[in-house]
C-alpha cells in the first residue's frame, strides 16, 4: 500500500474509533440518565455530568487526527511522504501506529460509559456517592490519556514537524 493510505488510516482510525467508542459510552450512560430522571427530575444534574465523561476520548481522537494531518503535510497542502520509499513507509506506519494507539485506547469510553451508567444508578439511590462515581468513571480515562501521550511521543520523536 502507498504511504498515504497508512497516514490517512491512522488519522481516520484515531478519530473514528475513539469517536464511535465515545458515542457508545455516552449512549449507555445516557440511557441510565434517562432512567434516573424518569423517576426523579432532581437526578438530572448529576446524571448529565456523569453522562458527559465518555465524550473526552473523541476529543483525544480529534487532536490526534489534526496532529497526523499536520506532520504529514495533509493540513497545508503538501503531503511529505508521497514517494513509496522505505523511509516514508516507516514514517507512515508510525503515524498509523499513533492513530491506532489513540483509537484503541479510546475504546475505554465504552467501559467508562458502563461505569458512569452504574454510577448514575448509585447516585440516583444515594446522591452522596456522586463524587465517588465520578472518580470511578474517571479511572477509565487514564488509559485514553496514556494512549494520547504515547501517540504524541510517536508523532514527535518518530516523524517530527
Amino acid at each position: 500500500m502507498e504511504p498515504i493510505v497508512y497516514v490517512a488510516l491512522g488519522a481516520a482510525l484515531a478519530a473514528g474509533i475513539a469517536g464511535a467508542a465515545s458515542s457508545f459510552g455516552v449512549g449507555i450512560a445516557g440511557a441510565a440518565a434517562a432512567g434516573a430522571v424518569a423517576e426523579d427530575e432532581k437526578n438530572f444534574r448529576n446524571a448529565l455530568v456523569l453522562q458527559g465523561l465518555p465524550m473526552t476520548q473523541s476529543i483525544y481522537g480529534l487532536i490526534t487526527l489534526f496532529l497526523i494531518a499536520l506532520v504529514s503535510g495533509i493540513l497545508g497542502g503538501s503531503f511529505r511522504f508521497a514517494e513509496t520509499t522505505t523511509d516514508n513507509l516507516i514514517k507512515a506506519a508510525i503515524l498509523l501506529g499513533a492513530g491506532l494507539t489513540v483509537g484503541l485506547t479510546g475504546l475505554s469510553a465504552i467501559p467508562q460509559g458502563i461505569i458512569a451508567s452504574a454510577g448514575i444508578g448509585a447516585t440516583a439511590k444515594n446522591p452522596k456517592t456522586f463524587t465517588q462515581s465520578i472518580i470511578f468513571a474517571a479511572m477509565a480515562e487514564t488509559m485514553a490519556i496514556f494512549g494520547l501521550v504515547g501517540a504524541l511521543i510517536l508523532i514527535i520523536t518518530g516523524v517530527g514537524f
Partner: peptide, 23 residues
C-alpha cells in the same frame, strides 16, 4: 466491543431507574 455492548447496554436504563426507585 460487541460482547460488552450486548451484555451491559440493555440494563443501563432499567437499572438506573430501579436504583432511583430504591431510593
Amino acid at each position: 466491543t460487541g460482547q460488552i455492548l450486548w451484555k451491559y447496554t440493555p440494563y443501563s436504563y432499567p437499572n438506573a431507574r430501579i436504583k432511583a426507585m430504591e431510593a
